[in-house]
Simulated assay, not measured.
Amino acid sequence: MLKIDTHAHYLPRDWPDLAAKYGDNRFAVIHHGDDGRHRIYKDGKFFREIWPKTWDPEERIADYARFGVQVQVISTVPVMFSYWAKPHHALELHQSLNDHMAETCRTHRRHYAGIGTVPLQSPRLAIQELERCMDQLDLQGVQIGSHVNDWNLDAPELFEFFEAAQDLNAAILLHPWEMMGTDDMPKYWLPWLVGMPAELSRAACCLIFGGVLERLPRLKICFAHGGGSFPYTIGRIEHGFNMRPDLVATDNPRNPREYLPRMYFDSWVADPRALRYLIDTVGVSRTMLGTDYPFPLGEQEPGAGIAAMGLSQAEQERIYHGTALEWLGLPLSRFA
């Protein structure tokens, strides 16, 4: 059975050192040590260690083959979004990442599809790069963050970008980044454990209550990490909508639950009971395999959560590849 991992992060081994070029240490830089370790630094401090499988397409293919997964939908690591940067500086980085990703997809067409990245702090440049990703690089869409500096995703400044994405039939992967409350919870990795799920609920609620999904019914957005806390608090969100429409329904009068059939979710929720709830709530037609590869917080055995669900053959086919192909706008023959 074809299995497509829709949430798999990817970086080149090296990328432009914009911290040095522009004198801004907020840009992520990579150091390859004599000890064989590969470390990302940001703000002049250690951020994360990565490994060759982050950038080596052949090693990734072999790694995935152990679990019967044939295809990865690759996207950058959110630290590279750089929405805080000057737009043209960020565009330089995004273009470099997108060019590298496109080359991997061209040379390993049966094993990779690509979701690019755009400088959303400039919606005009973001649309320009989205068009290049789709029309010139043969990528399937772009990954975006859960907010853009002071803009939530209902910001009027971002609507033309989403409109362009719908017009281009682009797949959007929505990933948490710059997690809320980071300064207030520095211990225990809480920004990743608590902030990440909240970021996705924040993004989903803004897209719904701000009317973005209402005005753009063909917009194809997949929420990483199973939608974070959003699907699991939809009851509370709906209750708030019903009981205090004066506060909640100020920009969109439709019940938020009505939008679940328009949203996609990856399957990585780290708990079989949570995955069962997600499938029961949004359906197999809205759920797709996703692992957060190759990082420790991701699913260490790709597809294991789905395999444990006791799903029918048809349901497994839908979650393992059918939903992903619909979201990506690709035929099954692409990976045959």
Rank of each mutant, 00 (worst) to 15 (best):
T250I: 13
Y320A: 01
R334L: 14
K42W: 14
I4P: 00
V282N: 01
R236D: 14
P191N: 03
P52K: 11
M179P: 01
D138P: 04
R215K: 13
V194P: 00
P245I: 10
G23H: 12
V212F: 05
P12D: 04
D56S: 14
F230P: 08
L207F: 12
A155T: 07
A304D: 11
Q72V: 06
E301M: 05
G68Y: 03
A126E: 07
A28Y: 10
R273Y: 14
L247V: 13
Q143D: 11
P231N: 09
Y10H: 12
F47P: 02
L219F: 07
Y112V: 09
M134V: 15
L325M: 08
Q95I: 08
D14Y: 11
I208Q: 04
S333H: 07
R202A: 06
L200G: 03
A274C: 12
Q128P: 11
F230M: 09
A20D: 14
A28E: 13
I234R: 02
D183W: 04
V148F: 11
I221H: 02
M179Q: 03
G33Q: 15
V142L: 03
P253R: 04
R106W: 08
R254K: 15
M1L: 11
L91F: 12
T107E: 11
C205L: 09
V71M: 01
T6R: 01
A171P: 04
L137Y: 04
G116R: 04
I127G: 08
I115P: 04
E160Q: 13
Y22C: 15
A198G: 02
D154Y: 10
I319Q: 02
G310Y: 05
P231L: 10
Q143E: 15
V142P: 02
D280K: 06
Y293S: 05
D34M: 15
R215T: 09
T117D: 06
W151A: 13
A307Y: 09
Q136L: 15
W268T: 14
T323S: 08
G211K: 08
H225L: 09
V284Y: 04
E92D: 02
G210Y: 04
Y232T: 05
S96W: 08
L158T: 05
V269Y: 02
I319D: 01
L219D: 06
I50E: 11
H321A: 12
V29L: 05
G23I: 13
K45C: 15
P191C: 00
A102W: 01
G68I: 10
S267K: 03
E157T: 13
